[in-house]
Amino acid sequence: MSRLVLLGPPGAGKGTQAKRLAARLDVPAISTGDIFRANVAQGTELGTTAKEYMDAGKYVPDTVTNAMVRDRLAQPDAAGGFILDGYPRTTDQVRELDDMLAEAGTALTAVLELTADTDELVRRLTLRAGAEGRSDDAEGVVRTRQEVYLEQTAPLVQVYSDRGLLRSVDGLGSIDDVTSRLVAALGDDAPAAGLADAG
């Protein structure tokens, strides 16, 4: 059973890798970003609020995010494991996640951190902004997001390292190569079935 958190700065490829790992491990990839964007597209009240924060390169308030993640982890498909992408982002959210898992009588299996050079990430994201017209990927916003990540989220790396859960993986290179590194980092925590094709 795999209960994983995937950490890494914006643009490091967390979404892509979460989906690939989820397929191999047969668990859901739970992305707060996807849920926020779906609400933005649908014009919901949550979406309107979330868009204001996202367009400024800031995080959606914890109260909204925590409730959403708690509900999602309670769904039947997450009972056998999950990969969290985009949560937790702060030490306060780490405590919230600890409480959620403790209530369910479970705990995290591992925390995977994708590492990548900041300038390369800014280049990647500004290229994507031009291709997709995403207002949250303009260069100034991208740099703000990187700064916010370092300020608020990077301390999580230390927390999970102290718990012996952290495995850091180079996030640059081909998608297949990065997936292979993540699977290798999981080692004995990854079930053999379905992983033979990891590359």
Rank of each mutant, 00 (worst) to 15 (best):
E103Q: 15
E96N: 12
V69T: 09
D71A: 13
D77S: 01
R89G: 05
A78W: 03
F82S: 06
V94N: 07
L97K: 04
E113C: 11
L114V: 12
T106Q: 15
T65S: 09
T109F: 04
V69E: 07
P88I: 11
I83Q: 00
Q75A: 15
T91R: 11
A110E: 12
T63D: 15
A79S: 14
L97Y: 05
D98L: 03
D71Y: 01
R89Q: 09
P88Y: 10
T109P: 01
Q75F: 04
L73F: 05
Q75K: 14
T65P: 03
M68F: 04
T90N: 02
V64M: 15
P61Y: 13
A67P: 00
Q93S: 02
E103L: 05
L108V: 12
G105F: 03
V111Y: 10
V94K: 08
A79E: 11
V64E: 09
F82D: 02
A107Y: 00
F82C: 03
P88Q: 12
M68Q: 09
A102E: 14
D62T: 13
D77Y: 03
D92C: 01
D99M: 09
P88S: 08
Q75P: 01
V60Q: 12
M68N: 09
L114Y: 10
D92H: 10
R89C: 02
R70S: 14
N66Q: 12
P76R: 03
T65E: 06
G86S: 06
G81H: 09
P76W: 04
L114N: 13
D85L: 04
L112E: 13
T63W: 09
T91H: 01
V60R: 07
V64Y: 07
R89H: 06
L108A: 08
L114W: 11
V64N: 02
D98P: 04
Q93M: 02
D92I: 11
P76N: 06
A102K: 09
N66I: 14
V60F: 07
P61T: 11
G105S: 08
M100P: 01
M100F: 15
E103K: 06
T65D: 08
A104L: 02
D77H: 02
E96Q: 12
G86A: 09
